[in-house]
Amino acid sequence: MKTCLVVDDSRVIRKVARRALEDIGFDIAEAADGMEALAWCRAAMPDAVLLDWNMPVMNGLEFLQRLRQEPGGDAPVVVFCTVENKVENIRLALDHGADEYIMKPFDGEIIAAKFAEAGLL
């Protein structure tokens, strides 16, 4: 079973995302900020990361930069999932190594479509 790390400071969003991702066959781990997510990745690199942008301690962009520098950190497919919907922000995320991008609000159908687009299904 593929694993996905859901990184978001909102417990509600993590719960919604967990349900949607479990429905399409993922095993889920959760982190509330980028620093916690990095610790997860160092312990066991997931197949995918669903990543919020604005979080305390370490934001999504900084996490992504640091993840890509870790040994094996280029492997996970990273899908941003954020309220940031400006084209400049989307470009910035892609330039930093994101593979796909979801604009909140989202539902299970969008998650499934984006994960399929990113080659995860």
């Binding site: 919907n85 400006k86 084209v87 989307i90 470009r91 892609l94 796909e100 991008y101 979801i102 604009m103 989202f106 539902d107 159908e109 969008i110 479509a113 984006k114 687009e117």
Partner: peptide, 23 residues
């Protein structure tokens, strides 16, 4: 809508072929 463009459009094609005004 933001919902419609997220059903099937890869993000790189979205930002290449569309412009956004709020949602």
């Amino acid at each position: 809508t933001q919902f419609e463009v997220q059903r099937g459009l890869p993000i790189r094609l979205l930002i290449k072929h569309f412009e956004n005004h709020d949602e």
